[in-house]
Design a protein around this nucleic acid. Structure first.
Lengths: 225, 225
DNA sequence: GTCTATAAAGAGATAGAC
DNA sequence: GTCTATCTCTTTATAGAC
């Protein structure tokens, strides 16, 4: 247990592993900002004071590099959510589990900003082979959310009239979007998570308005046409 | 008024205007799917059975073409929302106005799918000059949403404890995201809009759970750490 | 208006020096 | 491990034929 590491494959004392990491970091940042085809190997190399040709010592191709970035983005988020959920007491309620998933996903998006949003934004830009593998992984992560929502509905915790696919995609969309507009400083990620939870679970409508609003959900404007 | 057109600049009987339109349609589709740098002029030309060089008769450069696509995406959505809001009776409530904005934005995203989501997804991929102009236009549209939410809050229609910037970005994010996952067939855009409205305004929590949930909003899981 | 041909520049990938 | 060529292919943009 002497040189055992806390995480699975976090920090093997290998020499050039650090270089590999900084390449990945730079690649995530550049791919995220400029897209797949918009990022040259020289852009990535420049970021860390290397020459483009040198990258090939660490990665066999540009495609392998972008796929590694996307994998990390998705897997870290997925693992973080699983982890936080597993730490909940066994009797945690459905809504609590949903809140934890929302907060953890958002924190992962905002803290691993480059990796996670690279994995999201590049999906339609990369070659088909990468995209297919990536979508398969996304589906596995989506299944986690689907189960959270289905369990909550079975348990009577969430209303019966909202399609769960729509709810799932709207929630994940709102969270992923934050990678685009979030700027550190004003609002903390925790505060943002709290507000999105409040909105998604309890709605924006003020408490005193809520009673009336619940009776006429979303049809008032059909009048005109 | 004989040959007056219904919309502003919709269908002038010019000869090659049709070609220009099909170039824009093809460009929107390709740029949206493959990103800015991932879309060659030859990809666009191929889509409509032209040769790449011929595009220069209609657009002075690839940049001008992508900017035209992005402009259309944003302006059509913005105009549609303004238009629908202006058709509401003067005494329409704050929540009704919000619902209309949500539904109209979503319908615009799903119906102008290529243009609107191109304008969204390309923003960080295009050259800086285009991006700056685009962001300025986005800000103008965002101001419309900010006003909607601020008015609703001043009128007491929405709760006071949720940051309005977060609410705005979460709503727009959830709506824009639909461009990525929506596939015609299963759910209609109207139904999706209804569900997102219901979730955003009244929340996912079931009515009978709502009372209890309102008392413990989003803090249950702070226990562990 | 659209085509063909081509100029000019750029970028991924490889080989071999250090 | 990283650098400096260099090969090769692709792409934007232009010129001029039709």
């Amino acid at each position: 247990m002497a040189r055992q590491r806390a995480e699975a494959d976090e920090a093997p004392p290998k020499k050039s592993e650090l270089t590999r990491q900084s390449i990945l970091d730079a690649a995530a940042r550049m791919f995220r900002m400029h897209g797949y085809s918009g990022t040259r190997l020289s852009d990535i190399a420049d970021e860390i004071g290397m020459k483009a040709g040198s990258l090939y010592y660490h990665f066999p191709s540009r495609e392998a590099l972008v796929e590694a970035v996307m994998d990390l983005g998705l897997q870290r988020t997925h693992a973080a959510v699983l982890d936080r959920l597993s730490m909940l007491p066994a009797d945690a309620g459905h809504l609590t589990r949903l809140q934890v998933a929302i907060e953890t996903h958002l924190l992962s998006v905002l803290e691993q900003e480059d990796y996670t949003s690279a994995s999201i934004k590049l999906i339609w830009q990369v070659p088909a082979g990468i995209r297919e593998r990536q979508i398969a992984d996304q589906r596995a992560y989506g299944a986690l959310w689907r189960k959270l929502l289905e369990d909550a509905r079975k348990g009577g915790a969430i209303r019966a009239d909202v399609d769960l696919s729509v709810a799932r995609m709207a929630i994940v969309g709102a969270l992923n979007w934050a990678a685009d507009w979030y700027k550190p400083g004003k609002l903390t990620p925790k505060r943002i998570a709290r507000d999105i939870c409040a909105m998604v679970l309890n709605g924006l409508v003020a408490e005193d308005e809520a009673a009336a609003a619940k009776r006429r959900p979303a049809t008032t404007k059909r009048a005109k046409k």
